[in-house]
Amino acid sequence: MDLLDLFLQQLINGLSLGSLYALIAVGYTVVYGIVQLINFAHGEIFMIGAFGAYATWMLMGQPTDWNAPMSILVLLPVLIIGGVAASVTVALLTERYAYRPLRNAPRLAPLISAIGVSVFLQEAVRLFYGEIPGFPTAKSAIPFPSIPGISGSAFQFGGVTVQMTAVFTVGALAVCTVFLWFFVNRTKTGRAMIATSQDPDTARLMGINVDKVIMAAFAVGAALAAIAGVAHGLRYSNIDFRMGFLAGLKAFTAAVLGGIGNINGAVVGGLVLGVVEAMATTFIPGQFGSAAWKDVWAFVLLILVLVFRPQGLLGAKVVDRA
């Protein structure tokens, strides 16, 4: 494999991994933009999305006989809807009972509450998932249903192999970004979100129900995280109650990298982070380029950005008030 092919191969791997980070990162950034809370339980919302999709598959009777076009056109969307429903429900409950009562408390309180929710959700899935009749225990990894036509499929493009899971992940990010743009810029709720993030008190004077806007922010973030959860399941073929921890941390890194509070920044930050990881494991020589070091490079990137460009690549939300 020549150097150009190797570079292109890693670029595609990086963009695919980065899309996964970006889908999760949007949730951190949207919520932060509106309530200035780093929702450390968001990684678990991503995990819940994967387990919700799995539960949907179980409830459908573990179908394995779906073939290529229908599996992608029907089975996969159904799993995604199930995952999204689970994530959004859990995220809204979290907002209502763990964060809303602390909205006027010192900033540290909701942060600690978020860490508590994160541990709670991980443990709840670990201990109780297997208690649902017919469900496998989630104390170790569970194999994720395969979608014929995506799972394990790939095509050659020149000297480069493109996994269908990569196409799905990048495609999902592209579609979600378009929808998100439309939602934020063209719907009334979206406009209310922008207004609330710029000046919550004045937004309330306009007649905006800020509670609803905050719920919308949590719901949108959770929906994208659930889609990422399904993408993760397809990509790695299994899911695990701990999967939200590292993925959440990486996605948080991506959000900070792009400028926390900035939606475009989260997308760019996710993609940059994914590509940097993929490139580092290929082009850094010796043991420092081994797969074991990829997380190190990801967080080195975070530290460099925080030191030299603390507002992030695209700039954080600028508080600008007369």
Binding site: A195, D199, D201, R321
Partner: peptide, 15 residues
């Protein structure tokens, strides 16, 4: 005044 400074006149009125 607390206007939404980055938004246009029209968007402020719409809000």
């Amino acid at each position: 005044r607390r206007l939404f400074r980055q938004m246009s006149v029209e968007d402020n009125l719409k809000l």
